[in-house]
């Protein structure tokens, strides 16, 4: 039963990500076709893991972004 529940949780998580992807895609005027959706969901989940890692480091307020623009 535990395994089934885990699968259901996993399915729910994928559906939630699919909804998030749809919202984010609308924000940048991108239509993601059915063919692309599984791959985009997979990569979005992957990136979320990296976002969690990056957000997990508390940086001092005076640590500026390292953008490369030099006027």
């Amino acid at each position: 039963m535990g395994g089934t529940q885990s699968e259901e949780e996993e399915r729910a998580e994928v559906l939630a990500t699919a909804r998030d992807v749809a919202v984010m895609a609308r924000q940048v005027d991108l239509v993601i076709s059915e063919d692309c959706l599984p791959g985009v969901i997979f990569n979005t989940e992957l990136l979320r893991g990296y976002v969690g890692l990056v957000d997990g480091l508390v940086l001092p307020d005076d640590c500026e972004p390292a953008f490369g623009y030099v006027p």
């Binding site: 992807v21 984010m24 895609a25 940048v28 791959g39 997979f42 976002v51």
Partner: peptide, 10 residues
């Protein structure tokens, strides 16, 4: 394509 799309949504 799928990686670029996911990146564009960040």
């Amino acid at each position: 394509r799928d990686r670029l799309m996911a990146g564009a949504l960040l």
